[in-house]
């Protein structure tokens, strides 16, 4: 069990929970459960790591169902079950970085930008953030990216140039990922996608999160969640 340091509402049905003493690389996730097993919900919810510091990890999540509603009701000082870290996370290379986030899909991109800035301070970074109705966490992104452009109600993939040169990374709803994949392919840009999927275990055992790729099925949890846009068939 992990101690909750804070759990704040940071937007419409969007929460940021900080847990003590966990470690992860950018792009990895944990399975979070409001209580220990035996009580509902049965399964953990895969939640992306938003940020990391010496105290622990922060998780940005959207309250969509009963599992996340129970997480959202938790208070600082209480505990949750946090199992992980899972997944391979993002790759790092000494080059410019451009990220595209849609809705709660912005979650893993903050830690990526922050770490990129620390490792490659001379490189340019930019963020294109899209929201359907209301933005959240934008000022945090402004602190860690050279440029941050927000789109509310439109298509964030139209804002992002997705041009050759930088490494592009996208995370968000499937139609957004498909549009980014198509645009990057047309432009000859290099794009990585962080995928989201229903999963029972997070560990690669249940095969609930299989996704089709040019090389056959891959598991979002264990082989991903980050894939090259060239390999996944969305």
């Amino acid at each position: 069990m992990a101690l909750i340091l804070s759990n704040e509402c940071v937007g419409e049905r969007v929460f940021l929970m900080k847990l003590q003493g966990l470690r992860a690389a950018p792009g990895q996730f944990y399975m979070l459960r409001p209580q220990e097993r035996l009580s509902a919900p049965l399964l953990g919810r895969p939640i992306s790591v938003f940020d990391a510091d010496e105290e622990g990890l922060s998780f940005l999540y959207h309250m969509v169902g009963q599992g996340t509603a129970l997480l959202a009701a938790k208070r600082a000082g209480e505990e949750v079950q946090a199992i992980g870290p899972f997944g391979n996370g993002f790759r790092f290379a000494d080059r410019d970085l451009s990220v595209i986030g849609g809705g709660i899909g912005i979650a893993p991109l903050y830690y990526l930008l922050k770490e990129w800035k620390r490792r490659f301070p001379a490189r340019k970074t930019e963020a294109f953030l899209g929201f359907s109705l209301e933005s959240f966490m934008v000022s945090a992104f402004e602190d860690v990216s050279g440029r941050c452009q927000v789109n509310i109600g439109g298509f964030v993939t139209e804002d992002a140039p997705l041009a050759p040169g930088p490494l592009h990374v996208a995370c968000g709803p499937l139609p957004m990922l498909r549009a980014a994949q198509k645009k990057a392919e047309g432009n000859g840009a290099e794009l990585d996608l962080s995928l989201e999927a229903r999963m029972a275990c997070g560990a690669g055992a249940c095969l609930g999160c299989s996704c089709a790729t040019v090389a056959g099925n891959r598991r979002v949890c264990k082989d991903g969640p980050v894939f090259s846009a060239r390999e996944v068939l969305l």
């Binding site: 509902a40 919900p41 049965l42 399964l43 599992g67 229903r198 999963m199 029972a200 249940c206 095969l207 609930g208 999160c209 299989s210 089709a212 056959g216 099925n217």
Partner: peptide, 20 residues
């Protein structure tokens, strides 16, 4: 086999449905 298309995991009260 490549397994089934579509949703494969669904949580239920004290249980889960799978269609791997």
């Amino acid at each position: 086999s490549q397994g089934n298309e579509g949703v494969r995991i669904w949580e239920t009260p004290s249980g889960m449905l799978n269609s791997i």
